[in-house]
Design a protein around this nucleic acid. Sequence first.
DNA 1: CAAACTACTGGAAACGATACCAACAATAGA
DNA 2: TCTATTGTTGGTATCGTTTCCAGTAGTTTG
Lengths: 351, 351
Amino acid sequence: MTKSRQVTIHDVATRAGVAVSSVSRVLSNHPDVSIDMKRRVEDAARELGYSPDPVAQSLRRGSSRLIGYVVRDFATPFFSDVIEGLESVLNSSGYTLLVMNGGGSQTQEIERMTMLKQRRVDGLLLSTVVDSTPKLRKIVSAYDKPVVLIDRDLDNLDIGRTLFDHVTGIKAATNDLVNLGHTSMVLVTGSPDVRPTRERVKGFLEGLMTSPEAMKKSFEITGAFSAAFARKETTAVMTGNPAKRPTAILSGGVQATIGVLESFSELGIRPGRDVALVVVDDLPWLRILRPRISAVSRDAEAMGRAAATMILDQIGGVKPSTIYLPTSYEARDTSSSLEDVMAYRTKMQRK
Amino acid sequence: MTKSRQVTIHDVATRAGVAVSSVSRVLSNHPDVSIDMKRRVEDAARELGYSPDPVAQSLRRGSSRLIGYVVRDFATPFFSDVIEGLESVLNSSGYTLLVMNGGGSQTQEIERMTMLKQRRVDGLLLSTVVDSTPKLRKIVSAYDKPVVLIDRDLDNLDIGRTLFDHVTGIKAATNDLVNLGHTSMVLVTGSPDVRPTRERVKGFLEGLMTSPEAMKKSFEITGAFSAAFARKETTAVMTGNPAKRPTAILSGGVQATIGVLESFSELGIRPGRDVALVVVDDLPWLRILRPRISAVSRDAEAMGRAAATMILDQIGGVKPSTIYLPTSYEARDTSSSLEDVMAYRTKMQRK
DNA sequence: CAAACTACTGGAAACGATACCAACAATAGA
DNA sequence: TCTATTGTTGGTATCGTTTCCAGTAGTTTG
């Protein structure tokens, strides 16, 4: 711990033999500086190892080159990829990202948002645990800095939004399963309080449209972002009336996927054989599983980059807009046909 | 976006009909305030909805109630648990945690550290990608604020350290494997540039001590924090000379574990049957695998809480110290005996 | 050659708080 | 009654910048 007082703009001014205002002008490259002045100040600054104090700058300017991001849970692989994308753009523009965990509670998220405001962030990024509540709407509309929603929705508000076209991916998956003969399908997913869940349900239902029978026999289970919830629900559905047992499962979100797979492990169910499975959101460690699990995927890092670019634009005065990024379905080993599933089941039956 | 200028301490002073200095005194509960003054100021502050500006406070006080944490990769489950622990303690003491991703590069980490210093954090927490380099040592010793290392080491420096006793856990695992008859074991782990890897190697070697033959035939592979590295190395070792093929594998760290399991999937190797397996660091999604994988675990959240408490203490003037947290080995299904592994292998041979 | 620019430069007032110091009144002690 | 002491308060410098305003010198224009 060294004690040495930090070097200020005054020290630079004294050393260069000029006024502090001139130093400031040079360092923030104001047009009105002579070439000689520029040289002298820059030399002095370099010699003293001066670097401006961001705190003082924030106070004076009212801005901070800081961007805040309040996120439901940054440990989720999806969000950590988003963050990577955000940082890649932000850092190269001289901004710093401040990530705040919401801890799964709207109250805490709002606290974080106001604390970021007090710290004078230049913009706010949001992936909250709940979107579309009046409370959130109120605080967002009262925020006097640019706001960009990431994979969240809040309509009729003049803010930026970067969204995924969740419908397309899951609809394609559902269509594929229908074509493979399935009619009894279940979508297990997270909380309907956020857009991704709502859109996934919508896409699932749209995919079902082509088969009236499937529409009758399939349904979705939404609830909480927790593996325990998904595990319990999956177990209930898979151990219920054998006649009504679904022949295909779709899981939406990391926690749901973990829950579904946990349930399968416990029940001795092998995905792709006893039941078809499509997970929505690919996960890096899914690669270790055989058979390979079919997945709907999306580019989280691209979304991060898009959101960062958007908020920078808004800081620069561009009007808020909404952009959409695609999702895509990739059939792998567990998109098995109804026929195969039924064949396996009757074989088991006989034993 | 509302335009309204923020309410300052001056507004409160005017409203209460007192001097700004008195307002400041009341709000930072200085002892020398009359009960009447206190009431008037508090009323005025409440009526105006005043809250002090942290930026101005930082500038004046030189401190910020902010704690910085520079971490190798916060997407790793271990670190996100640590962060949870940190926040639980810090938030309830009125501090805010600023998490900065190091991006796997020491250069970037050092940049982050200086930026945090400029932002006047009151303390710095570190889990860097490399410890014990002269460069890091230099910058840490020049840091004029309390520093606490989390699961990292840097000796002969007057800073706080919260460390795991990695040796005990992995030594217990190794001993168990030795008792199960194994002599040909391989430890696949991350980069030796950080303490956990070095200690794990040390614990592994200590565990080997009881068997001269094991000491001769077992070895460790250290390298990078990447699944690809671990996968490649595992494949190399498992497809080499059958006579020398290890009968037990220990994997250290998330990425190594993923890599090992990927390799196993590709080669059709089933842990616990073709080879014994112990992973060092339990992972939430390991639960979905059958057989259940033996693991060495540690309490990341507890470490976060300990580190937070320690840095708060140091800010309060307590001398830096070092504390150790335990690690423990839990044998599950994949701690299979040499006998079983060999039986399976020869059975395969005959086919 | 006076007037009007242009190109720089320095001084000083903010930004919003804290903390030191002096001043004041009321009480206690001599 | 006079001084010391205690408790409480207001004024003001300060933290490290930015930015507005004036001022100077040199250049161009009528």
